[in-house]
Amino acid sequence: MAEANIKEGKEPLCESGSHYQAAFRYMLLARIFEERTASLYRAGKVVGGVFMGKGQEAFSVGLALALDQSRGDVYGPLIRDQAGRLAFGEALIDAARTYLGSVEGPMRARDGNVHRGDILKGMIPMISHLGSHISVVSGRLIGKRFRGQKDIVGGVCLGDGATSTGAFHEALNQAAIEKLPLVIAVADNQFAYSTPSERQFACADLVDRAIGYGIEGHSVDGTDLSLCLETFAKATARARAGHGPQLVVGHLLRLCGHGEHDDAAYISEEKKQGAFGRDCIEVARQHLIDSGWSTSDEIEQWTSEIQQQVEEATLCAQRESGPDPFQETWQALATTRLAEGLIEGSPGQ
């Protein structure tokens, strides 16, 4: 395909200060929220795990801001997409509630941390099996096509590790066959848990896979917010215009462990000092100042506002009730007359 492997230029073609500012504030909100959540985890207030998107915020927000929830776009985030979730429309309190086990959260404490979403609002609640949510997003696009809804785009996020799954292959091939308006964002952060890219795949750049699927591919420096915004704007516009699935590979480095339980001692200093080891938030902050769109005082002001917002959300979620096993329905079926759950052995009996 002629358009395959569109390598992005170094210079952004177009951007506006306000758009960039908005993106940056989502990144900052995500970073500060995740740092707060991590500290609550270390204090024993968050059970299960905390999975941060540190270093991936620019790439994550790039896709989400190119989508429009109000027109019916669909979004399938993964574990490192706090920034994208917020940009797509997730309320911060829902993230806090899910991490902190509040029954008021969207998952009602039945599921936790990053396993949350809002199906009715177009945000897929991921399961842990990597790659399996791609075809779910595709299915929503197929459903919308049946319903006659046009000009809709689905965006789905994953990391380099998920590209090794059968689910990824099946879903990309299926989306290509159906020519779905699907943007697949692969954050190649160089590690899947502790496994480095060279033990994960053998192609030079994951974007090369686009050719094999007969879809368009884009490769971008995932540490550069300008390039991420521009690339996703272009990819999303092409998907919306009927050019089929778009594979966008972002090159970056995970600036944290797999989860907060992991000190990531396996990430070498060389990688950290490498081209993609820079912190996208620092890069964006500098760009805001250099381009005259914001001042460091203004950014300081945002930071303290966001810290306040995060504090309020986490305190609110902590004050709310956790789940009561004796109030739980223990029913996995929507069809109550067919539910068998309340047989011996269930708690509460």
């Binding site: 075809s135 595709s138 299915g139 929503r140 197929i142 049946f146 689910a167 299926q174």
Partner: peptide, 25 residues
């Protein structure tokens, strides 16, 4: 248009069906 051939991809078949239900299918 309503009886559709699928590729040999059982995982993607079911995943996409799950997604389609959210659109009322």
């Amino acid at each position: 248009g309503r009886v559709i051939d699928a590729p040999i991809s059982e995982d993607a078949m079911v995943g996409s069906a799950v997604g389609a239900t959210a659109e009322g299918m």
